[in-house]
């Protein structure tokens, strides 16, 4: 009987003390962040899944006779293929909606993969630097300081021009230059954690240094890391879009949101839809990620909340 009560109590305590659950509950109350979350999830799902279904026309099939069709129109090509243009067609008769979806795949993939690269480097570097401490830490952080002073946009441009417009390379390049802030954040966290009792306990249990770093310290830095990751994705997507806009990123006929906006900007006077639709989707996606990041910061670390 008594043990039963104890059990229930300990269950209650366990539930209440979970960081993830607490934060989720707090995040759920933040309407703006939740709307952003669902919007972003919807965009990702549509971009990656919808092109599988056949009713979305191939983004690269051109119908010269169906140029600049208005939005919400149906058209039939000479070959008898019926096309429904949700957002109209461009100057080559390509469906804008499906180009936005395919472009979105590229933009989002760059965003995710480059962020993953920066996350891996940044977390490992920051955790090592913070954990080792002393002279090594000072030297490692000086390197970060120096790298901070380098003009990254320019380095990425140089890399992409010299080594070809390879999309995979682009991810790695962007990821490899975006890890600095993450390293600083993780280092700060690790320094504040490494003298706490649970680490001492792990050490006295005879765990290896690597195990302490990767199993005990890094998982405890998860809050700020999640927040900063959410904010890195839109930053990377912006960088990719700028590169594509300058003609240094994705090459035609492939598309990303940046290259679509570029095409739209060139033909804005005759066909504003070409610029407006991809620009709106792009801006809303970045918007949702930024608000989600803000919401996550408030949810994961209520102390730092803005008000």
């Amino acid at each position: 009987m008594i043990s039963g009560i104890h059990q229930r109590e300990s269950e209650a305590i366990e539930k209440g003390s979970s960081l993830g659950r607490d934060s989720w509950l707090r995040l759920r109350k933040n309407r703006l962040a939740m709307t952003s979350l669902w919007f972003f999830v919807t965009v990702v799902v549509i971009c990656f899944l919808l092109p599988i279904f056949s009713f979305v026309p191939d983004p690269n099939v051109t119908f010269p006779e169906l140029q600049s069709a208005p939005a919400f129109s149906t058209a039939t090509s000479v070959d008898g293929i019926e096309v429904y243009y949700l957002f109209g067609s461009d100057h080559l008769g390509r469906d804008i909606f499906s180009r936005i979806l395919y472009g979105g795949r590229v933009s989002l993939a760059v965003g995710f993969l480059a962020t993953a690269v920066s996350l891996t480097i940044g977390v490992a570097y920051g955790a090592l630097s913070g954990y080792i401490g002393g002279k090594v830490d000072a030297a490692m952080m000086r390197i970060v300081d120096i790298l901070y002073a380098l003009p990254f946009m320019i380095i990425v441009i140089i890399l992409t021009t010299y080594f070809g417009n390879n999309l995979w390379l682009l991810f790695v390049c962007i990821g490899a230059v975006e890890w600095l802030t993450m390293a600083r954040i993780v280092r700060g966290q690790v320094i504040s954690l490494k003298n706490q009792e649970f680490v001492e306990a792990a050490r006295s249990l005879g765990l290896s240094q690597w195990r302490i770093i990767f199993r005990h310290l890094i998982p405890n830095t998860i809050g700020p890391v999640i927040v900063y990751t959410t904010l890195t994705v839109p930053a990377v997507m912006r960088l990719e879009a700028i590169l594509s806009f300058l003609g240094l990123g994705v090459q035609p006929p492939d598309a990303s949101w940046g290259s679509l906006i570029k095409e739209g900007a060139d033909r804005m006077a005759s066909d504003p839809g070409l610029l407006v639709y991809p620009a709106i989707i792009f801006a809303l996606t970045l918007f949702s990620l930024n608000f989600l990041g803000d919401g996550l910061r408030d949810a994961l670390d209520p102390k730092s909340s803005k008000d």
Binding site: P234, R238, A241, I242, F245, G258, I261, K262, G264, A265, M268, A269, L275, A279, F282, A283, L284, L286, F287, N290, F291
Partner: peptide, 17 residues
């Protein structure tokens, strides 16, 4: 926030237009 999410390469052509 809208200003941050609307990149220069969207604002520039629109202002120009």
């Amino acid at each position: 926030m809208i200003g941050i999410c609307l990149p220069t390469f969207v604002i520039a052509p629109i202002l120009g237009e």
